[in-house]
């Protein structure tokens, strides 16, 4: 008897629909003529045009991208160092504690991270006078604290898969440890570094909660602008912006996926 496939396919379709129909609707309505988000009146790209005239939104978007880029870079550096320590040094004093502290931000509620960092920044400003006010720097620091944990997880997985004898062989052939790291280790974990960077970039780009705590006046990130404008009624400009973000994020995820998949075979 032939197995009937349609029940399974239905479930699958329902699952995908649940995940992606909202996004699809958002994209469709970004091309809506009408000012009302929920009523379709015709195709138009006028909201994209208006979006690019909206200086406040553009400023926020530019700020977010800058924060995300700096954050991703710092997170990759710190996360890689942390992953190195965990994979390469199996026994050092406080290893368990270090591992716990490193992974804690993965499970810590954003609200708590945001609030505690705000308290810290305020206290620091009072005592040592830095950071002077809140804005770009404080948001970036806050983002690095949690996104480096994600980077560490990704890089750690890659590092522990790596054959140690490759590094030993390089050393045996006369390369000093730093050189071994630069010429052998780094190229081999590069795919993990790239996907870690993209992951950190995306995490930072869509963070609303933590940024709301540690942002100051004049440093409004994109998610904050969107969130506040939604409360005053959704403008289709937001749909247009969201569509662009979805496109960028999708691209990033695809690149990360491809580079990770290329990984194992390059081993």
């Amino acid at each position: 008897m032939r197995r009937r496939r349609w029940p399974l396919l239905t479930v699958l379709a329902f699952g995908y629909a649940f995940l992606y129909v909202p996004i699809l609707l958002l994209i469709i309505y970004s091309f809506n003529e009408s000012r009302l988000v929920t009523v379709w009146t015709g195709f138009s790209t006028k909201w994209y045009v208006e979006l690019f005239r909206n200086q406040q939104l553009l400023d926020a978007a530019w700020l977010s991208v800058r924060i995300a880029a700096v954050n991703a870079t710092l997170a990759v550096v710190l996360g890689t160092l942390a992953a190195n320590a965990l994979v390469r040094h199996r026994h050092f004093r406080g290893r368990t504690g270090f591992e716990l502290l490193l992974t804690a931000p993965l499970v810590m509620p954003d609200v708590i991270i945001g609030l505690s960092l705000l308290l810290l920044f305020v206290a620091m400003q009072h005592t040592i006078g830095w950071p002077d006010g809140r804005g770009f720097t404080t948001i970036t620091i806050a983002h690095v604290t949690f996104s480096m944990a994600y980077v560490a997880v990704v890089v750690r997985a890659r590092l522990s898969q790596m054959d140690r004898s490759l590094e030993e062989a390089a050393m045996d052939l006369g390369a000093r440890p730093l050189r071994v790291y630069l010429t052998i280790t780094l190229p081999l974990i590069a795919p993990a570094l790239l996907s870690g960077w993209l992951l950190a970039f995306t995490l930072s780009l869509d963070d609303l909660v933590i940024a709301s705590f540690v942002a100051g006046p004049g440093s409004t990130t994109l998610p904050m602008v969107i969130y506040s404008s939604v409360r005053m009624g959704v403008s289709p400009q937001i749909n247009a912006l969201a569509t662009i973000i979805v496109a960028v994020v999708t691209l990033a995820v695809v690149i990360a996926g491809i580079s990770m998949r290329r990984g194992p075979e390059a081993r």
Binding site: D163, S165, A169, M171, L173
Partner: peptide, 17 residues
């Protein structure tokens, strides 16, 4: 290892991929 006048062939060959 990097300063010894000795070279080694590894069991896994350890060729740089």
């Amino acid at each position: 290892a990097y300063s010894r006048p000795v070279n080694m062939m590894f069991q896994s060959y350890a060729l740089f991929p």
